[in-house]
Amino acid sequence: MTPANVSITTQGKKPLFSFGVITDIQYADIPDGESFLGIPRFYHHSVLVLRRAIKTWNDHNALSFALNFGDIVDGKCPKSQSLPTVKRMVNEFDQFDGPVHHMIGNHCLYNLPRATLVKLLKIPAPSDTAYYHFSPRPGFRIVVLDGYDVSALGRPFDHPLTMVAWKLLEEKNPNSDKNSPEGLTGLARRFLMFNGGVSGEQLTWLDKVLGKSTRDGEKVVVCCHVPLHPGCSSPEALLWNYDDVLEVIHRHGCVKVCIAGHDHSGGHCVDSGGVHHRVLEAALECPPGADAFGHVDVYHDRIEILGVDRMASMELVFRP
């Protein structure tokens, strides 16, 4: 009998490879609270979601790696506890029987400088950048973007990319509180301090990586903490220069799926180039006993996201 969350089309077929996914754990040793929209947040329970995810992944016994889409610690974590809390969460991930690839989110940057995070999370990128790529098997490539490369968070105020970020926020958001979208309309509501952008240098890097993948006949999955398309996300959670990133992605035919976190309720759309955009549901908003994690089965012509509980399962068929 086929499980309810597995597509009939792939029953009996073995995936080329599989990997675990989780996002927005945002653990903190503080009482439960709520978001600015009044949505409950379960800071203590989120680490239990992670533990159940890792046990499930290990029991699966066929996952090549796991992807953490960022925000393993919450911004409300007392700053005196930031370093030990991040180290604790990294140790939790180390219980997985395989490599874990991390992304940096805004809540990570509220707690620690990005250079420190890059080291703690073992991100394989030079200096304090956090974008990288790897091939889990011939014919496929995972590209991880740094959605806070241009950001008001995580670097000294006089860093060139910090200055670019503040200039953009001053131009686009007239509010004194740069995390407030008050008065902003439509997609302009993305210009908030808890979002970020991709630098010109990273765009050039992405173009080169995707160009080589196209020449080599690879299929690419692009991952980023921040969503890359307005069709799958609220405007308030969107990458500042998502359009620049999409222009590079659509320049090449190799990208099949983009996966993100950040917008906790999740989402999905297919863009004008036939690329799927999937935002994963957050572990933080799971009440005690509930879960939000999953794993991804990759086939030649599709991926299957097999979610647990609050993470929706979904089949994403590649456009030829």
Rank of each mutant, 00 (worst) to 15 (best):
V221L: 15
I54S: 04
T204V: 14
G75C: 05
N175P: 09
E236C: 12
L37V: 01
W205P: 12
I303T: 04
V6G: 00
F96G: 10
H60N: 15
D207W: 04
P40R: 01
L284S: 01
P136C: 07
M193E: 13
V49N: 07
E236D: 14
L210M: 08
K172D: 00
E201W: 03
P287T: 02
K119Q: 15
F96T: 11
G33V: 00
S151H: 09
L121R: 02
K256G: 09
G183E: 08
L210C: 11
S7W: 07
G196Y: 06
V270C: 10
H133I: 01
D128Q: 11
T185D: 09
K14R: 14
L121T: 04
G147R: 04
F157D: 14
T214R: 11
F191P: 04
K172E: 09
K208V: 00
R278F: 13
V21I: 15
N175R: 02
A283N: 05
L168F: 02
S135D: 14
T116N: 00
T129I: 02
P84D: 10
G183D: 08
S234Q: 13
F65Q: 01
G217N: 11
K208F: 01
V257Y: 12
P40Y: 01
K119G: 01
R251S: 15
V150P: 05
F293N: 06
G217L: 11
V270I: 15
G20W: 11
V255R: 07
A4C: 00
G139P: 03
F42I: 00
R251E: 14
K76H: 09
I249H: 11
C254S: 15
C223I: 03
K76T: 00
P126M: 02
C286H: 01
H264N: 12
R51L: 10
H159M: 07
F96L: 11
S35H: 03
V49E: 08
G105E: 09
I142Y: 04
R141A: 05
V21T: 14
K122L: 01
I25N: 06
V150G: 05
L187F: 04
C224K: 05
D297F: 01
V270E: 08
C224E: 06
G139Y: 01
S151A: 13
Q95K: 14
G98M: 06
G200N: 14
P3I: 04
R319K: 14
P124C: 10
N61A: 15
S176A: 14
D158L: 11
V100M: 06
L206F: 10
D32L: 03
F96N: 08
L63G: 12
R319Y: 02
H277Q: 05
K256S: 11
E201F: 02
D24P: 04
G274N: 13
F36N: 13
P156D: 13
V118S: 12
L50C: 08
R302P: 02
V257C: 12
V49A: 08
G266R: 05
P138V: 09
E236Y: 03
V198T: 13
L210Q: 07
V222M: 06
P99S: 12
G12Y: 05
A165C: 09
V6E: 13
